[in-house]
């Protein structure tokens, strides 16, 4: 995987993966951090799969990636993505 924004993560099944971080930001509505990243996997039509996780830094310095379960937050995150794509 190319690019300078590549990091390693351990997925939920314990497998180590390299992912490219597209962006990492704080959502104003709740002050939490989120990360949008991709393994650059594409489907049959050439669309690319991207993932969004909540980033939580633990006291020991490690980082946990949690899912986004709140619909309101997810809706806001989609707005962020569309806004970013539009704001080029």
């Amino acid at each position: 995987m190319e690019g300078q924004n590549v990091i390693k993560i351990i997925d939920i099944d314990g497998a180590e993966k390299q992912v490219e971080v597209i962006t990492h930001f704080t959502l104003a509505m709740n002050g939490k951090d989120y990360m949008i990243y991709t393994e650059n996997k594409t489907d049959a039509n050439g669309n690319i799969e991207i993932s969004t996780s909540e980033v939580v830094e633990k006291e020991d310095g490690s980082i946990e990636l949690n899912g986004v379960t709140d619909e309101t937050v997810w809706s806001e995150l989609k707005k962020v993505m569309v806004e970013m794509a539009k704001g080029e």
């Binding site: 799969e49 993932s51 996780s53 990636l65 949690n66 899912g67 995150l77 993505m81």
Partner: peptide, 11 residues
Amino acid sequence: AIKSTQKPHRL
């Protein structure tokens, strides 16, 4: 050390 504890939301 970054570890997923839950499935990410995918698009």
